[in-house]
Simulated scan of single mutants.
Amino acid sequence: MGKVLYSVTMSLDGFIAGTGGDMSWLTEHLGPNPTVDEVIGKIGALLVGNRTFRGDDPHKGTAKEGKPFGGGWSGPQFVLTHHAPATPVPGVTFVGDLDSGVAAAKAAAGDKYVNVLGADTARQCVDAGVLDEILVCVAPVLLGDGVRLFDRPGGTDVKLERISLTHAPRATNIWLRVVR
């Protein structure tokens, strides 16, 4: 079975989305990143939070809008929600709880990564002990407010071990393993 990976781009001050979930800040930081290109090829399924699935898109207004990684990836998506839409969405399965979402995504991913999208979903994965790795691409910008990378008030320490540190033209990539 593959691993569960949380991959995300974050501002230097720790935000993955701006105020109100705004993702427009990310647009200028997208671009060549060999580490991201490599990981995209190793993703077998997505586990997506509802807020992320229904939220803003840095590719808004372009042909890449609504496509994972701007169209750089396609495959099965599992969205955590208690309110699935009445109309089916092609390639998307709506799941009501983390355990069934992780199990379904892992089964679909095979020996590839289940890539987590969404801060709250990532937090739930940490709390449940199912998150294996974190890839944070740090963009050179300060957002000042928004959605934090991890928000766990009162949470306990989560030990991490650095796998790699790489640089791309628009980000510094920090790849970490969750130590159990």
Rank of each mutant, 00 (worst) to 15 (best):
A86I: 14
A86F: 11
T87K: 15
T87Q: 15
V89N: 07
P90L: 07
G91P: 13
G96R: 10
L98W: 00
S100Q: 14
S100N: 13
G101K: 01
V102N: 06
A103H: 06
A107F: 03
A107L: 09
A107N: 07
A108H: 08
G110K: 08
G110T: 12
K112T: 12
K112L: 13
Y113N: 04
Y113G: 00
V114R: 05
V114G: 00
V114H: 02
V114F: 02
N115C: 11
G118A: 04
A119I: 01
A119T: 03
D120H: 13
T121K: 05
A122T: 09
Q124R: 03
Q124C: 00
C125F: 06
D127L: 01
A128C: 06
G129R: 07
G129M: 03
G129S: 05
V130K: 00
L131I: 09
D132L: 02
E133Q: 12
I134L: 09
I134P: 06
V136G: 05
C137F: 14
V138H: 10
V138N: 07
P140A: 08
V141A: 07
L143S: 07
G144C: 10
V147D: 08
V147Q: 09
R148M: 13
L149N: 10
F150Y: 14
D151M: 00
R152M: 08
R152L: 12
G154T: 08
G154I: 05
